[in-house]
Design a binder for these strands. Structure first.
Lengths: 111, 111
DNA sequence: GCCCCCACTGACCTCAAGGTAAGTACGCAC
DNA sequence: GTGCGTACTTACCTTGAGGTCAGTGGGGGC
């Protein structure tokens, strides 16, 4: 939605996950719905403003679903859509590669 | 190397591909070695400075190999290392997901 | 009555990634 | 001897993502 036109599919995918906290958000939402406050605790370091912002972008891209309960105090639950779940699956191999890299870095004395 | 410590493997992987042109560079280098000038032509829009910068970072992360031929005029060839090749493979599913998204966007009348 | 908590919103600021433009050293073609 | 091409480097500038901080409205605990 932002860098169009895309050179390749990778380009289009990276566009969606581009944002300092987005992969962490998607990761946190994997197989569980979360309230805003929970998410904030699951993604350490993120501020409320930026979390809201990135959640809205993910929602606009059809990755997360936002469910508002009209109660007091306010309650909002976030969850992955089917598309978001597919994205998470597609991110699997990348995560595995990164894990191997982390292990290699640690072995090399970086950890 | 920049956002350590990582929360998860995905985090570590994203750190490596973080940079406006890196996935495009990796994509261009898939199964072919390239000279600097070729790469510049394959990655439209990138400037010399930034291309050099990102190539150096990818080199430092062990993703690309830089081969300097000590000739005049200068000649340098870039290629993916084994690790880079593995990364590219890991990026495959993400690229496929992105392609599906592109198709969906086009169908929705965005293209 | 006061303050906290929920899920935000808005104004303002910072900083680093990336862009611009110029310079470098050398050989070769003309 | 002027200019081009190679693969860069350097100084400077712009831009926008993300961070900081304060505010919102109403219920519940003390």
């Amino acid at each position: 939605m932002r860098n169009q036109p895309y050179v390749c599919g990778l380009d289009a995918a990276v566009d969606v996950i581009d944002g300092k906290w987005k992969v962490l958000i998607i990761w946190a939402l994997d197989h569980q719905r979360c309230r805003f406050g929970e998410l904030r605790r699951l993604v350490p370091g993120v501020t409320e403003k930026v979390l809201t912002q990135q959640l809205r972008e993910l929602e606009a891209d059809g990755i997360v679903h936002r469910e508002i309960y009209d109660v007091v105090p306010p309650k909002v639950e976030y969850s992955l859509t089917e598309l978001g779940d597919e994205l998470n699956t597609a991110l699997g191999p990348l995560g595995a590669w990164g894990k191997r890299r982390m292990a290699a870095l640690e072995e090399a004395g970086q950890g």
